[in-house]
Design a protein around this nucleic acid. Sequence first.
DNA 1: CTCAGCTATGCTCAACTTGAGCATTAATGG
DNA 2: CCATTAATGCTCAAGTTGAGCATAGCTGAG
Lengths: 348, 348
Amino acid sequence: MSYGEVRERATRMDSPADPQAVGEKNANAGVEIGLNAAIVAVADNEPQVLVIRGETDKAGATDGLPFGPFSPLHHRTFEGGLRTWVKHQTGVELGYVEQLYTFGDRGRHAQQGDVGPHVVSIGYLALTDAHPGSDLTHGTWRSWYQYFPWEDWRRGRPEILGSTIEPRLRDWIASQPATTGQPITRQERVRICFGLEGAGWDEEKVLDRYELLYEAGLVDEAARDGRKAADEWQDRPRLGQPMHYDHRRILATAIGRVRAKIKYRPVIFELMPDDFTLFELQRTVEAILGPHLHKQNFRRLVEGAGLVEPTGEVKMRTGGRPAKLYRFRREVLLERPAPGVRVKPGKV
Amino acid sequence: MSYGEVRERATRMDSPADPQAVGEKNANAGVEIGLNAAIVAVADNEPQVLVIRGETDKAGATDGLPFGPFSPLHHRTFEGGLRTWVKHQTGVELGYVEQLYTFGDRGRHAQQGDVGPHVVSIGYLALTDAHPGSDLTHGTWRSWYQYFPWEDWRRGRPEILGSTIEPRLRDWIASQPATTGQPITRQERVRICFGLEGAGWDEEKVLDRYELLYEAGLVDEAARDGRKAADEWQDRPRLGQPMHYDHRRILATAIGRVRAKIKYRPVIFELMPDDFTLFELQRTVEAILGPHLHKQNFRRLVEGAGLVEPTGEVKMRTGGRPAKLYRFRREVLLERPAPGVRVKPGKV
DNA sequence: CTCAGCTATGCTCAACTTGAGCATTAATGG
DNA sequence: CCATTAATGCTCAAGTTGAGCATAGCTGAG
């Protein structure tokens, strides 16, 4: 097949095509690329995310994730562009950066009948040990549980689940049309996502839960996007703070990804200072994951996996016996295929 | 900060901005979105990928992955657009579809000094049990190991590793400038990626291996992109068949993702017919992963996890005792948080 | 100055999982 | 009918994991 033929086919969507061809044939379908970053740090045992405060309306402030348009003229790679503008704006030096997902749904944050330029957002997860509070020119560190209170299991099952979410979801289940040919019922979906009826809470299903709540019309973004009439919404307490556009969805993706990732990659150390005690490490893991872990087993795990080595120093004033300080053993990356904090949730 | 201010800042890349603002301010940075799909099936114990045959030049045919531009006017979601054009073109009904990664590197497949429209490709992985050979209007099923012969460990360690890849990589290691301040040496990287010196082969590191070979100038794409002078390349046998643009990179990502995914999600059944024997299932898993698995343990695992249930039928003419037929128990999705074929590679 | 209180850290044990291999069952093709 | 080839059942040792008991070593109250 010649290159010309390839180009011919490009608009029929069935062949590889070259960049120029696409540019010429579909100029009217031009799309803007936006990079959104969920920048995560942990401070005071609280997982923090860097947000830009929005304006305050009757419903309160609406925050958004840091955002930068991607300009192919200025940036060779997405990740490079991201690091540059985040550093430039906030002074935060990103450690680990990982692409999450590219969101392009119409109907999520687009208006009805929208035919203008379309924005595709590429979501990123970034981890940093930057000390929240320092050097920020824009943006604020906020606990990610403000946006997802039902994800915070550090003090047991969050009250909001039983008091608000479950009753609402039961209404939603009850309102399901009887004759749908859905392969899976609303009831089953709720059960799996929220771990009801003995299904067990899976801390990684952050996005699934958010999307279910969205679909059920229980988060502000759903109302805003026109899924529910506004007045039907007024009297309902909001479930977590909303964010601009689909930013809460991106953040949900980010939280789920970190929670999964620390179990098989030592990314948790991106969130730690150079030296730390094992209990501080455990607290950080718990801030991310939720449930409490068995202390002795946690240290056996971390030490046994060769993830850390003692610095020789100790930390005094722990409230009890002094704790040995450790540092991350970067060499594990060279030794083990999938080193990570292989924790499983303990008893709550 | 008001929303107007936020919009002002958008072009300084430091704040959330609304779609319209981005569209107006950066019209000259317009970007085209292309969807690339690695469509995978397994036939005759061979993992197959659907490719579009390219033209034949002196170096042989260059294949590409099916490609379709994304038009925000016609498609509400990326995935919807993908399913539609794939079905339309090939007749293949996609089962499981998953977004892989969004590639936007300049310098990968862009020409020097390219300042024209930029193409961003969103790579997708799709699984289907479509029987290769049927209903294809365009495209051909080919074994993915044609493009990655070093990934095929089904008959033990692939010969190409010892005969060709290792010597070449040793040259590359030897040619490393002595005084680089690299945090990790070429030698270490090769060791980890290719499991040398007892490091162990990690079948999921498909992309890492490909990118290392690319960086070392050992795959055709590297030469094509200008990393090596063409004549320096001539006499070298190619390492696997090349593909258009960065399609082999996308395929590498896809293979790595499937290999990882089947271990914690029951996606393997997307590749199977409705009824199958446990050994057929094992063969399919092995086609994907590579190494041989311990037969008895494999069946213990699969049955124990409740992934399958007997249909009551048996399959005769297996060459020995008749084999019970099984089907996928879809209910596991409702029972377990992360059902999958938790195999670990056995002895090779 | 001493001891209660508190956290750090060491160690044990039973239950469960995993890797391997032996043994038995049941068609198939001469 | 028997040798061959798979399928399937079962056992066992080694390793991993969940839980808890016990000891060590500061700090602050009295």
